[in-house]
Design a binder for these strands. Structure first.
Length: 583
RNA sequence: GUCCUCGUAGUUCAACGGAUAGAACAAGCGUUUCCUAAAUGCUGGAUACAGGUUCGAUUCCUGUCGGGGACACCA
């Protein structure tokens, strides 16, 4: 990575110039946003000049005098208030380009300290279809897992399915009284959903039905054989359907340890926490309160009411003895730490659950767990009214529906092309383009912002979308197909045209971008990078004909195409988007 | 009420404290004897408001206004 090398060189230059760096200060080098000034830049001189009370430009000059980067840069300049601007030399770019074409990681170096990271994402509920709300967790989680693995971490993905809870009282009651067996065979999840909805309506109108449901739930929790069998069948049928959806989306999990997996751990966990004084009995329930170890404004167990701080406890056992969401999550943390030796646990879960995780993480810490736990927050998908899509009240759009529609639209687009595709070709292209479009629509966006669900936006095939990137890839492949037969790319390269240089420069930045994604868990940085790369490639493609060129020019351009091809395929792969040779 | 989060072009979104705030869609006019036109060139338009910190603020801090969310026995 040029950035890392330049950072090291800069550090050495400070030492050589006899400037002692303040504690914890490392010179900052970034990819220049505006290539007019150079390719990389640093603001280190400006920041240090403040602390050392020196003139920033003079300080910059001192550093430049000692800087040894002639192997990398053809130009270093001091601009504006004291920016250090580096312009890479052609030889360094060429070397980099050769590496991308040879390396199976497209020139992305591994992390220096690999970790064991457990990533918790997707987490659909049993007996309910996945809806558009699951898009964010599933795609963001999957992309982060892929990137983390790619740069050398050990990743364990776990789908913490909602397979246990009060809804099973109603489902079991409905299963026994009104289940349509034929429908269950045909479309199990929808059969279960309609049963659930019908019972829910009945229970609202008739108290006695609600009581029956509660009784079924109690029996299930006590291990009644018949209810247990029904529950297991519900889980099996739902997982079977989910696997199909995940298969279409190319999303895989290492584990499916749902909430029920932790049932036996809950009572001992609560007892232990009471023993240790972390949890106390209050109003009949068992709850965790503030221990006063952090300032009240940072304490997740306190809220301010007027001028006083009031308790905001986290309940782990209900008055009736039942356990809750937080209890299961605490047990889950125990398991992940003890059984999987997790260094870090990442939760890709929506913003509404921020308080929940703050409380659970704080509770786990009090139990002596010092594993790093991160809630990777994302904004909500809103309905046309600007309010959250609700699972319980309003109808939402099914995830499968969105994917199918996307594939259909991509298929229609493929149909219009005159590339002599067979039906099988068209189906495969439609699957990749359609599925990729939905993923890219999500992943190209900052995860924190809410957005309104829109069919046209999610399924668009024009503009900054997956097909745009795929088309760039297809263009690279088409060139190699035209060559008919193996091409030997030779190491003799010469970058002369601005479009060639711009492309080589962009390709070199893949290494930095792949790493930056995990700094703040933001796949959209990678998506944006790939868009810029595709854009740069399209520009190169218009400006520089490859096949009609000869000799070293042709070899250089072919190498640029090969490198672009590799980076696009690898980068899209990190987003969970497959590529196609033709479209 | 308290806390969290968001507020950027007509719309949907970008921008690890950096230089002239980028794209896409929508609109208009062009580009195919040339490697896939799902491409490409050109033309307008935006940081909610008020302070503060800084050489420099869309970004950090404070307040106001506005959207959304969470706040003891649902998950």
């Amino acid at each position: 990575m040029f950035r890392a090398v330049l950072t090291d060189r800069l550090q050495a230059a400070f030492t050589a110039a006899g400037i002692s760096l303040p504690e914890g200060f490392t010179p900052n080098v970034v990819i220049a946003a505006d290539t007019r000034f150079g390719n990389y830049q640093s603001n280190a001189a400006m920041i240090l000049s403040k602390q050392l009370k020196l003139n920033p430009r003079a300080l910059a000059q001192q550093i430049v005098d000692k800087l040894e980067v002639t192997d990398l840069c053809e130009k270093i300049s001091i601009d504006g208030p004291g920016f250090l601007n580096f312009t890479l030399g052609t030889a360094a770019l060429i070397q980099r380009l050769s590496l991308i074409v040879q390396d199976d990681h497209a020139g992305v170096p591994p992390v220096s300290k690999p970790k064991r990271i457990v990533i918790d994402f997707s987490a659909p509920n049993i007996a309910k279809p996945m809806h558009v709300g699951h898009i964010r967790s599933t795609f963001i989680g999957d992309a982060l897992a892929r990137v983390a693995r790619f740069i050398g971490h050990t990743v364990i993905t776990d789908n913490h399915v909602g397979d246990w809870g009060t809804q099973f009282g109603m489902i079991i009651h409905g299963w026994k009284t009104q289940l349509d067996q034929a429908k269950l065979k045909q479309d199990p999840i929808h059969a279960l959903v309609s049963v659930y909805k019908a019972v829910n309506a009945e229970a609202k109108a008739d108290e006695s039905v609600l009581t029956l449901c509660k009784n079924e739930l109690v029996k299930l929790q006590q291990g009644d054989a018949e209810n247990l069998a029904i529950w297991k069948e519900c889980v099996r049928l739902t997982l079977e359907q989910l696997e199909k959806v995940y298969g279409t989306l190319d999303v895989k999990f290492d584990h499916y340890l749902g909430e029920s997996f932790y049932n036996d751990a809950l009572a001992p966990l609560v007892a232990d926490m009471v023993d240790k004084g972390i949890a106390t009995i209050s109003e009949g329930a068992t709850a965790i309160f503030s221990d006063g170890s952090v300032p009240p404004e940072n304490d997740p167990f306190l809220i301010r009411d007027k001028d006083e701080w009031k308790a905001a406890p986290c309940i782990i056992r209900k008055t009736d003895g039942g356990f809750l969401y937080a209890t299961t999550d605490l047990a889950t943390i125990d398991y992940r730490v003890k059984e999987w030796n997790a260094d870090e646990i990442w939760y890709v879960v929506g913003a509404p659950q921020q308080l929940h995780f703050r409380q659970v993480f704080a509770a786990a810490q009090r139990r002596g767990i010092n594993t790093k736990m991160v809630h990777i927050v994302f904004g909500s998908i809103l309905g046309p009214d600007g309010k959250m899509f609700k699972t319980r009240s309003g109808e939402t759009v099914g995830l499968l529906e969105v994917i199918e529609e996307a594939i259909e639209r991509a298929r229609a687009a493929a149909e219009e092309k005159e590339q002599g595709f067979s039906d099988a070709d068209k189906n495969e292209i439609a699957r990749i383009v359609g599925g990729g479009s939905v993923k890219y629509a999500e992943l190209s966006q900052n995860r924190l912002t809410d957005y309104k669900f829109s069919w046209d936006k999610m399924l668009s095939l024009q503009g900054n979308t997956a097909p745009y990137l795929l088309n760039a890839y297809v263009r690279t492949r088409s060139i190699f197909r035209k060559l008919e037969g193996a091409v030997e790319l030779t190491p003799e390269l010469a970058i002369t045209e601005p479009a060639e240089r711009a492309l080589a420069m962009k390709l070199a930045q893949f290494a930095e971008n792949a790493h930056d994604v995990l700094d703040d868990h933001r796949p959209n940085l990678l998506a944006n990078y790939l868009y810029e790369l595709a854009n740069t490639y399209h520009g190169f493609y218009e400006a520089c004909n490859v096949l009609r060129a000869e000799g070293i020019v042709r070899n250089t351009r072919l190498t640029l195409c090969e490198a672009t091809s590799r980076v696009l395929k690898t980068g899209l792969g990190l987003l969970g988007i497959q590529t196609t040779e033709r479209m």
